[in-house]
Design a protein around this nucleic acid. Structure first.
Length: 268
DNA sequence: ATGGCCGGTGGAACCGGA
């Protein structure tokens, strides 16, 4: 079962490129982020025509996540539990049933910038940065619940976390950024420490592997990238991991997203 | 060394992103 995550940066601007990539890569499942569309505005027929079931959790203008699946989707839920007043569309779950049933979570973790610092130089947990860390606490809680099923679980998406310095071409330029602050990295590690495996690092070591290149400052041409799109696997899913890849070439095409797809192949 | 973009909204600039 090939499962991909892809921050498409707007379905209206990206549907043609997305269809092209789906035809070539042929994933069984695509977890999409930043659809930037309400559910009614999502061009679901384009993907149904390719044989995908479509489940969306959108909102107007910003955020929004979706799941495309060639296999049936069951028990779809929308929204990350833990804060009823959070109206941002950043989390969707469904169970996909192939040879094995896999619980899928598609997520778009808050960016968290800008960060304000107190006079001692410590980041202040408020505003967008506070929202990010609070959201990660809720992610930790949901991840804890999901582990209790002892079934294959895949939590994949745009985590907006640079896990280690080796995951950035210029780590020094991210020191005071919400994507790389020690507190952000620690919150990410706390989820891993529950027992999740980060799929890419289970297969590939060393620097130079990125999933995002800014539109600005010629970041793509200079390979000034960061690796922030991740697939986290429960122990039962990690047992099934066959392969993981980053579809880097997508970034060099016409009208690309600033992110590229990352995918795993599971024995499921 | 520095600055450089893009999508959505709404119909001009502005917000948000990372």
């Amino acid at each position: 079962m090939k499962i991909a995550t892809f921050n498409i940066n707007g379905i209206k601007a990206r549907h043609a490129a997305l269809v092209d990539w789906l035809k070539e890569a042929d994933p069984d499942v695509a977890l999409l982020q930043e659809i930037k569309s309400i559910d009614e505005g999502f061009p679901r027929e384009l993907f149904e025509d390719l044989g995908y079931a479509v489940e969306t959790h959108g909102q107007k203008s910003f955020n929004g996540v979706a799941i495309l699946s060639k296999l049936p989707l069951e028990d779809v839920t929308r929204g990350l539990p833990g804060n009823e007043s959070d109206e941002q569309a950043r989390w969707i779950e469904a169970t996909v049933v192939g040879e094995r049933a896999v619980r899928l979570c598609g997520l778009y973790l808050p960016n968290g910038n800008p960060v304000e610092f107190d006079p001692s130089g410590a980041p202040i947990r408020e505003g967008k940065y506070g929202y990010k860390l609070d959201w990660m606490d809720r992610l930790h809680a949901r991840a804890t619940q999901l582990l209790q099923s002892e079934e294959p679980v895949v939590m994949a998406g745009d985590y907006n976390i640079i896990p280690q310095d080796e995951d950035a071409a210029k780590p020094e330029s991210w020191r005071r950024d919400a994507l790389a602050l020690p507190e952000s990295r620690a919150a990410f590690r706390r989820v891993l420490n529950l027992g999740f495996t980060e799929a890419f690092r289970a297969k590939v070591t060393g620097p130079g592997h990125y999933s995002f290149w800014d539109y600005q400052a010629g970041a793509w041409q200079r390979n000034n990238g960061i690796r922030i799109d991740h697939l986290l696997l429960s122990p039962q899913a990690a047992d099934l991991l066959r392969n993981v890849e980053i579809d880097k070439d997508i970034r060099g095409r016409e009208k690309p997203s600033d992110h590229v797809p990352v995918w795993i192949d599971l024995e499921a």
